[in-house]
């Protein structure tokens, strides 16, 4: 287990460095940042001045090393728009996004796993087809539109829940449903497929031959084998939620990191965009590492080789 962890950690660090370089470079080649900042009517002299001010005239590797050294020291620069430290901007917003993402994933898994198991146990029955219907619904419906419908139903018509802001748990319910519905189907179908495969395995027949109760056969013996890919997909889904809930954050006016990224891109506030890019990448890396560790915990063949 120790060696496994060190290996994975090493890989994670290498990936983090690579991603930060690529992200940095991509942002620089996406356009002339200095020209964007200077505005439409700027003269070449003004653009050059701005480039010099932000160090954009220096060689790319020098810019990167300076930025990376500062970033490691906790200094992500300042927003060009508000002049606040980028670190503060992100920390202020990240809580909302993390809460929303975690709630959404928990909701999605809470539905996906029992429904997937049930669909597999009752494969090709009306229960299975109903589960498939739910999955297709969740996959097909655009989540911003679903969010609007939720707002209309529960916020406007029924007046049960608040529709915007992030000041209480109740505020998170509707956006959580909107996002959870989007990530649930893939998790459910992966659970179902995995269970169907595992239920055919010889060791399931052994478990039945031992006279174990159906609950023990399905949940203890089958699910733990079927759930490994679901863990990996959950990590990816959480990464997606952390970085990709821009539209739902906008619909529900949740002041999260997605909204910040969206605004910053429109304002060419590249230090903020750069930092969010790195933050989301790091989140993916940490989540992948976590899913590897959970899978190793679940499957001794991974941790013991």
């Amino acid at each position: 287990m120790g060696r496994f962890f060190v290996q994975r950690l090493g890989v994670a660090v290498l990936v983090a460095i690579t991603v930060s370089i690529i992200g940095f470079a991509l942002l620089r080649v996406s356009g002339d940042l200095a020209a964007d900042l200077a505005g439409e009517d700027a003269t070449p002299a003004e653009i050059a001045e701005i480039a010099a001010l932000y160090g954009l005239d220096r060689p790319l590797h020098e810019q990167y090393l300076t930025w990376a050294a500062d970033a490691l020291g906790g200094d992500l620069g300042q927003s060009l728009f508000t002049n606040e430290p980028v670190m503060d901007l992100i920390l202020e917003r990240v809580g909302v996004t993390i809460l929303l993402s975690v709630y959404s994933l928990v909701l999605a898994l809470g539905i996906a796993i029992p429904l997937g198991v049930l669909a597999a146990i009752r494969a090709n029955t009306s229960i299975d087809r109903a589960a498939l219907g739910v999955a297709v619904f969740g996959q097909a419906i655009p989540n911003f539109w679903f969010g609007l419908i939720l707002i209309y139903l529960f916020g406007v018509l029924l007046r049960w829940l608040p529709i915007s802001g992030s000041s209480s748990f109740a505020h998170f319910i509707l956006p959580t449903v909107a996002l959870g519905t989007a990530v649930m189907p893939a998790l459910m179908r992966l659970t179902r497929t995995g269970m169907l495969e595992v239920l055919e395995a010889d060791f399931i027949r052994t478990a039945r031959a031992k006279g174990l109760r159906p609950g023990a056969v399905f949940f203890k013996h089958a699910l733990r084998n079927a759930v490994l890919p679901v863990v990996s997909l959950s990590a990816v889904s959480l990464g997606f939620l952390l970085g990709g809930s821009v539209i739902v954050e906008t619909v529900f006016a949740l002041n999260g990191i997605g909204l910040l990224a969206y605004e910053s891109i429109l304002r060419s506030d590249f230090p903020v965009v750069q930092s969010i890019l790195v933050f989301v990448s790091l989140a993916y890396i940490v989540l992948t590492l976590a899913s590897d560790l959970i899978n190793a915990r679940l499957d001794p063949r991974i941790r013991l080789g």
Binding site: F203, T206, A209, K210, G211, H221, R224, N225, D299
Partner: peptide, 20 residues
């Protein structure tokens, strides 16, 4: 089953649960 009568299967490589 598993109590008064028990069964031994052909393939011991796949008849045991790999994760326990």
């Amino acid at each position: 089953r598993g109590n008064r009568m028990a069964m031994i299967f052909q393939d011991p490589m796949t008849s045991l649960n790999p994760v326990y």
